[in-house]
Design a binder for these strands. Structure first.
Lengths: 220, 220
DNA sequence: CGCGCATCTGGACACTGCCAACATGCGCGA
DNA sequence: TCGCGCATGTTGGCAGTGTCCAGATGCGCG
């Protein structure tokens, strides 16, 4: 440390040359954490490595997140937000198209997000991190909106079904879309197999498999 | 340690009163590991705790599994074996019934296993542990058999579809069943919602939701 | 100006996975 | 039958981790 004048000028700007207070450390931590998650999955994420990448001490994160689990829960909620953005974009893009096409577009968006964000998708579906049954789940309102979209969709697909049948159809479709996403993420099926399967399921015409109009979500 | 005669007689039988060689340590380690997995999920499993429960030194497991990942992979393969057992039992039980009923029974068995074994189901579906793309995946032959069952089933359900359609229907059904299981495991839907959804999906009559004829798999 | 408190720091502890070196005793060949 | 090799077990050690504690820093408000 102390070597005569001030402090050693290490390569570039080191922590010692920065203001003591960071400014927006929480965001920087989340960005660094997403970097790690995308690189190697959330199970190997280390709070200390996050702090290192944000160029702060190993204890700084504790002033923004009580513990590792809280950080991961936050990342999960952010990821769910990213998924929801894609779903709503697909919904808007097909607002004036027939229901089957809308259903296909939304399903493709769901699975596309999972395929583009393996690690985040697994993170937000890990019940040890984001358990919807937990009372303080910050994901609850987001899940609510996903459910809402699904309900609306199924109502459009089959307007004259009685309530019980609609509920059953809703969870069936949800399960199928979610399951296909999971199979892609775990590498059990190839992404190319998704569109035909969706076709078989919804009967309608699935949109082109690639979905370039919605870029992968940024960290923010 | 040394307190006069022999060695301290600690409560019950301690490691020091046991034969130096264990006999079947591998099995004991797997049993202890499954215990931990079932209690708190595989992410928090610690090799040292496994060794402690098997009453051996913290390094003994390394002579049976190269590292933590290998132990978990082994547990994953064992779990997959348990699932396969249930599926084949359901298949045998409905061998002479109509295809839709057989499909319902097998789907219910799949989801029932997941519901009864949350932690093991998650373990064997974690791509960081059991990646089917990995060449040395010991689960490959098991997955093969699951695929075989699925193929046979879909062929029975729709005998005169052309190959492409059958493949699509196969992954669609697989995805739906897998997705419903995942939704139950992550707590996003209740187990009771499964049967109606399967009904909506397969059209047929699903078997009773509970499935008492196949007890939960033992550790072995 | 000065005080409080959110923020950030280094140090410490218990725990972990894994490596290296040594101990034990079963099984097999001479 | 002996004794030697090697799988199986042991203790010890290292680096890395999550979390707690006590102190340093500096922004904002009286």
């Amino acid at each position: 440390m102390r070597d005569g004048h001030r402090t050693a000028r290490i390569l570039l700007v080191s922590r010692s040359e920065r203001a003591y207070h960071h400014g927006d450390l929480a965001a920087a931590l989340e960005a660094a954490a997403f970097e790690l998650v995308d690189e190697a999955g959330h199970s190997s994420l280390s709070l200390r490595e996050v702090a290192r990448r944000a160029d702060v001490s190993h204890n700084a994160p504790y002033h923004h997140y009580g513990d590792r689990a809280s950080l991961l829960a936050r990342l999960g909620a952010l990821s769910m937000g990213g998924l929801l953005d894609r779903l709503e974009a697909a919904q808007r893009r097909t607002a004036d198209r027939p229901p089957t096409e809308r259903a296909s577009a939304i399903a493709a968006a769901y699975i596309g997000f999972a395929a583009d964000n393996h690690a985040r998708f697994r993170l937000m579906n890990d019940p040890e991190i984001c358990d919807p049954r937990h009372p303080s789940a910050s994901m609850a309102p987001l899940l609510e909106r996903v459910h809402g979209m699904l309900a609306e969709l199924v109502d459009d697909l089959d307007p004259q079904a009685e309530p019980a049948g609609r509920a059953a159809l809703r969870t069936a479709i949800w399960g199928a879309v979610h399951g296909l996403a999971e199979l892609v993420v775990t590498g059990q099926i190839d992404r190319a197999e998704v569109a035909p399967a969706l076709d078989a399921l919804l009967g309608g015409h699935a949109p082109r498999p690639a979905d370039p109009s919605t870029p992968p979500p940024s960290t923010a």
